[in-house]
Amino acid sequence: MTSLDYTRFTTLARKILIAAQQEALAAGNPEILPAHLLLGLLGQPQSLGVQTITVLGVPLESVRAAGTAALPPAAGEARPPLPFEASAQRVLALSFEEVERLGHRYVGTEHILLALLEVENGFGPLTALGAEKAPAAAHIAAVHAAHAERTAAQPPS
């Protein structure tokens, strides 16, 4: 995997990566998969990524159950640091592409969510529960636009 600039990840996005490793270790998996990233995302309930799942009408308990069901059987004791499996590496790379596409400067939880939906390509825990990338992207864009409007309306300090 080419080196990613993890300094561009928000604090919450970095916490997702840490939680994904913890999920993989707890499951006895030797590498981090997209399902681990999804479970890590759920650990940040106040994040825009998780709020977007909720806005899409997908129950978080169902996402957790589907993400857990997507994990492979335990393969024995795994030791950190765990590598990212190829499709999880793709999620991280696509997170940066989402940042560029949306004109943002950082990788947030919302970018990881969009990348997860892209990697699922209609066949994964989120899409099986009815989450789709286009409505998720529209919601995220609207939230960012509203934030930009509020920020622009504030007088300079």
Rank of each mutant, 00 (worst) to 15 (best):
A69M: 04
P83Q: 13
L38I: 01
Q89A: 11
L39A: 04
Q89F: 00
I53E: 00
P34A: 08
G40D: 05
N29S: 15
H36L: 12
S47F: 06
L94N: 03
S47G: 15
P45W: 04
Q44P: 08
G43V: 03
P34I: 09
G49L: 04
G43E: 14
A27M: 01
L39R: 13
G76Q: 09
G40Q: 01
S87E: 06
I32C: 07
T54H: 13
T54Y: 08
A26S: 15
E77R: 12
P83V: 14
F84Q: 05
L92T: 02
L33V: 04
A93R: 14
V91N: 05
P30E: 07
G40K: 01
R79H: 14
E61Y: 00
A70N: 04
E97M: 00
G49D: 09
A88D: 06
E77L: 15
E61A: 15
A66L: 11
A88T: 04
L92Y: 01
P80S: 11
T54Q: 13
S62A: 14
A93V: 14
E77G: 10
A66K: 06
L48T: 06
P80F: 01
A69S: 14
T68K: 13
E31D: 15
F96I: 00
E31P: 03
A66Y: 10
E77N: 09
G76E: 10
P80G: 04
A26I: 05
S95V: 07
G57T: 03
A88E: 06
S95M: 04
A26R: 15
I32K: 03
Q44A: 15
P81C: 12
S95G: 14
L82E: 02
A27I: 02
A78P: 07
F96M: 00
R90K: 09
P73H: 07
G43I: 05
Q51N: 03
A78F: 11
R79K: 12
S47W: 09
L37I: 10
L39G: 09
I32N: 10
L60R: 08
S95A: 15
L56A: 08
G43C: 12
L38H: 02
G43K: 12
A65L: 10
V50S: 01
E61T: 09
A65F: 02
